[in-house]
Design a protein around this nucleic acid. Structure first.
Length: 498
RNA sequence: GGGCCGGUAGCUCAAUUGGCAGAGCAACAGCCUUUUAAGCUGUGGGUUCAGGGUUCGAUUCCCUGCCGGCUCACCA
């Protein structure tokens, strides 16, 4: 049992449990030896990986300096084996009492703990069992660890602790680290693709006086100096389009959007979206872009266009299936939405077939309900679902032959939405009537419907070229490419609590 | 927001019908010069999520709250 020394009763210590107090006492004893337990610098000449690679190539390494965290200590009396972990991997260390000196050796055994950062210098050898090992000549403490790390064999499983103390999750569960490495590669590959295709990366406001560009409720915040409420953006769309009006022909933004909605395994209140707009393109241009970006990101993350989703093997190789929403709904529910062009006839057809679906106040929302219920779950292999109801797509251009339908597609794979794109609406009067229509839906109780954004109409009045626009959710893309069922596994600090 | 399930040692998990709260790892005191989930001997470690109730007695049964998981609703 460890007893605190006199004078060591400050408030910090009262917060420590028994294990932490033991380590704190060890830290003090190290300090009494004249050693700084938190030195300012850590010299190192090699990573663990570099040492192993060099040895494997047959190079003789003497006096290699490495640094990292102690993750195992096996004290055998006058000989101690340890493992040291750094960002590149891990390597075994061998401390011999007759080599490092009795005083140092005792400090190692008595005062060092699992989790401590140490630096070692020594020659690289192989043990009897063939493991590449640093035979330590000198070592030093680089940073004392006061809190014990999770037990190494079972790892950390408590979900709440995994997300709230993600650093422990990353230390304990090697696969978790791989997910975030893959995510980084995905984003890098996406940027590289867009940059190589002459898209300009821009940054638009996250704090907005009027939010828009998607159907969602916003977070509201307050600016003190202006003494007014501002919204956190729910989409980048309306600002990026203003840039096309200003003469940029290809722009993109990768940023957080914020939507004040429920939290579940596919929704986090803040999430990362890539939006891009290409002048003189349309939604078919964006289909090609989606196929190519997904291929580039899949190769970067996995080195392959094949991904696994539960029991399903998914092939991302272009070209992806292209199917109209009309055909897909007809195929999966036996309803031809074009033969039922208004809410009354559509509802009659649904009753006739005795379909169990929720009812909605507009034709467009009923079509979306049929799609979500019957069609979406079947979309395992990648596919573009084309031509959506105008009523649920206020920023997409109508099809000339059918004004109830717009040129919009959503990409699907693994029964998840992978992207959303339009032939962008650039007719200011039509855009105005869409806002008025949205206003009516809002008045009828739809909290997600748009408010009139006259500033945006004014921008369109100055002329926007024919344009294709696209949004890809980075989190869901990462879920698909890393075979994760929960968005929390691909967001490094997810929002908790349902 | 609704329904169902859960919260026990630093970590992973047990605990019979309501009857002394345990194990492995980790820790502490020792032994050990080729181990690698090292081994051996010994020791300590608990507000059983919090608060209330029933009971001779509650980890266990009931109520409330907090936190989390799954699911439905909302929502891409």
């Amino acid at each position: 049992m460890f007893t605190l020394e006199t004078g060591m009763t400050d408030e910090f210590l009262t917060r420590l449990n028994e294990y932490e107090q033991q380590r704190y006492a060890k830290m003090l004893r190290v300090r009494e030896r004249g050693i700084n337990p938190y030195p300012l610098r850590a010299p190192r000449t090699h990573t663990t990986r570099a040492v192993i690679d060099a040895f494997t190539r047959g190079e003789t390494l003497t006096g290699a300096q490495i640094a990292g965290r102690l993750i195992a200590l096996r004290d055998m009396g006058k000989l101690t084996f340890a493992h040291l972990h750094d960002g590149a991997g891990k390597i075994q260390l061998m401390f011999r009492k007759d080599q490092v000196g009795a005083e140092q050796y005792t400090m190692l055994v008595k005062e060092f703990d699992l989790g401590d950062f140490i630096g070692v210098t020594g020659d690289v050898i192989q043990t009897k069992t063939g493991e590449i090992t640093i035979q330590v000549a000198r070592f030093e403490l680089l940073a004392k660890t006061l809190a014990p790390l999770p037990e190494k064999f079972h790892g950390l499983k408590d979900t709440e602790q995994r997300y709230r103390q993600r650093y422990l999750d990353l230390l304990s569960n090697a696969d978790v680290k791989k997910i975030f490495v893959a995510r980084s590669k995905i984003v890098t590959a996406m940027r590289a693709y867009l940059d190589a295709h002459d898209f300009l990366e821009v940054e638009t406001p996250a704090l907005q006086a009027l939010y828009g560009g998607a159907a969602a409720q916003p977070f509201i915040t307050h600016h003190n100096a202006l003494d007014r409420d501002l919204y956190l953006r729910i989409a980048d769309e309306l600002y990026l389009k203003r840039l096309l009006i200003g003469g940029f022909e290809r722009v993109y933004e990768i940023s957080k959007d914020f939507r004040n909605e429920g939290i579940d395994h596919t929704h986090n209140p803040e999430f990362t979206m890539m939006e891009c707009y290409q002048a003189y393109g349309d939604y078919t241009t964006m289909m090609t872009l989606v196929e190519e970006v997904y291929a580039a990101c899949a190769l970067a993350a996995n080195g392959s266009l094949a991904v696994t989703r539960g029991e399903h093997a998914i092939d991302l190789t272009p070209p992806w299936r292209r199917v109209t929403m009309r055909d897909l709904i007809a195929e999966t529910s036996n309803v031809d939405i074009y033969a039922c062009p208004d809410l009354g006839s559509l509802n009659a057809r649904i009753e006739e077939l005795n379909l169990k679906v929720q009812r909605h106040p507009t034709w467009g929302k009923m079509v979306d309900e049929l799609f979500g219920t019957f069609a979406e779950p079947t979309l395992i292999q990648p596919a573009f679902v084309m031509d959506y109801p105008e009523e649920i797509s206020p920023f997409a251009k109508k099809k000339p032959e059918n004004p109830k339908i717009v040129e919009r597609f959503e990409a699907f794979g693994g029964a998840m939405e992978l992207g959303n794109a339009f032939t962008e609406l650039n007719d200011p009067y039509d855009q105005y009537t869409r806002f008025i229509e949205q206003g009516a839906q809002r008045a009828a109780g739809d909290k997600d419907a748009h408010e009139l954004d006259w500033d945006f109409i004014q921008a369109l009045m100055h002329g926007m070229p024919p344009t294709g626009g696209l949004g890809i959710g980075i989190d869901r893309m990462t879920m698909l490419l890393t075979n994760q069922e929960s968005i929390r596994e691909v967001i490094i600090f997810p929002q908790l609590r349902t």
